[in-house]
Every structure is written in C-alpha cells, then in structure tokens.
Simulated assay, not measured.
Amino acid sequence: RVIVAIPPVLAGRIRYAPALDGLRDQLTQRVPMGTVIKVQCVYPTPFWRAAGLSGQATSDTGPVRLAFDNSPPDASVGVLMGFMEGDDGRALLRATPEARRQATIACFTRYFGEQAAAPLEYIEQSWADEEWTRGCYAGYFPPGVWSSCGVALRQPCGRIHWAGTETAEAWCGYFDGAIRSGERAAAEVLAALPAAAPATLSDPSEFSACE
C-alpha cells in the first residue's frame, strides 16, 4: 500500500496503473493551488519600532496587502515581510523582479513611512514557480467542488491512500492538519493490512493545534 501526501493537483500529475477512478481524477482536476509571492525587504535596523509600530499591516490595497516584522531576535537588521496573494500575485507573476521590488517598496513605504523606501536588500519567493508546489498556501476548492467531488478526497483508491493538509478534517492548510491527515492515512493502512503484531497510533484528536 502507498500513501500519497501531496496536493490533489500534483497527485493528478502522477501516472497510475491502473488509472484512478473517474471521480478521484475529476477531483484532482478541480483543486488548484493558491498564488502567493513572498517578499522581504532588509533594512539597517527595525526602524518602525522606534516609531511605536509593530511592523504588521493589513490593507485593502495591494499588491502587498499583508506585512509582518520578520527581523531576527537580536534586531541586528530590520526585515519587513509581505505577501502578494491571489489576483495581485498572478498579475505580477510575469513582471520583472525589479517591478515586484518597486511595488513592494511602495506598499511598505505607505505602511511604515519614507524610511522603508531604501532597503539594503530585496528578497522574493514565487511559490507558483516552485516545481514541487506549483503554488501556495494549499489547494483550494472552488464553488461546487465539495458537493460534486468531495467524497473522493479521502476515500482510498484500491491500495492508494490519500493524506496531505488538503485532506485534513481540522486545520486544513496548516502543518497541524498535515500531521492529522498522516495519522488518519496510517490508521487506514494498518486497518487494511492482515492481522499482525498489535500496533497503535495516537488519536489525532489528542493533538492541539498549538502543540
């Protein structure tokens, strides 16, 4: 038996013999990955703290609508981190790195003042361009997918069992959900194997999302 623990859209790119049943394959065609570009600007100091600012911002104007203070504990440098998500991220996927840099700096300057306009360094990560993720933060279910194909999300296909954060019954999209899904899939495999030496797994409900 095998446990496949990758997002549905990536699981759909595996060649199966025999082929997956139709409903499971239809599901993998309908659960795309989100779009996120992670950006960071490095400054000599976390200057915003001196102004009494947390370094965190939320805006209804993009492309960087979320920002956080990502400075190291010793504050040896200041680091502002942000995310270009969804339509904002897709609009800038084919832009130049310099265009994304300028867009990021413009947002940080709007949130934290003119000192944000001159970073020492700009760093970015486009998760849509990563071969083994093809997006971020997780696969999502557009309207109608749950009701039409959702039953196939966790249901084994022969000797293939499904895990991964998208299949979690709680904390979907988080590490906690990924761990819970692995516990569930492992329990399925153990239950399906011929009787052997007793084996036990922790009940996923025993784990807190904060642990």
Rank of each mutant, 00 (worst) to 15 (best):
A5L: 06
A5D: 03
A5H: 01
V9D: 09
R15F: 06
R15D: 13
R15G: 06
L27A: 07
T28F: 15
G34S: 04
T35V: 12
K38Q: 14
V42W: 05
Y43P: 04
R49E: 12
R49F: 06
A51S: 15
L53R: 13
L53T: 05
S54A: 10
G55P: 11
T58E: 12
D60F: 12
G62P: 10
G62C: 09
R65E: 13
L66R: 11
A67M: 07
N70V: 07
P72I: 11
P73E: 15
A75Q: 15
V77K: 11
V77A: 04
G78F: 02
M81H: 13
G86D: 10
D87Q: 09
G89R: 07
A95T: 13
P97M: 02
E98R: 14
E98C: 05
R100G: 08
A103S: 06
A103R: 03
A103C: 01
A106Q: 08
A106L: 05
C107T: 06
F108N: 02
R110K: 12
Q115D: 02
A118H: 08
P119E: 14
Y122E: 05
Q125N: 07
W127E: 08
A128V: 15
W132R: 13
T133V: 04
G135E: 04
A138E: 13
G139Y: 04
P142T: 00
P143W: 08
V145T: 03
S147Y: 06
V151H: 10
V151A: 09
P156M: 03
C157G: 03
R159H: 09
G164S: 04
T167D: 00
T167N: 00
E169C: 03
D176W: 04
I179N: 01
R184Y: 02
A186R: 06
A187E: 11
L193I: 02
P194H: 05
A197R: 07
L201E: 02
L201D: 07
S202I: 14
D203V: 01
P204D: 06
F207W: 15
S208E: 04
A209P: 01
A209V: 04
C210M: 10
E211P: 00
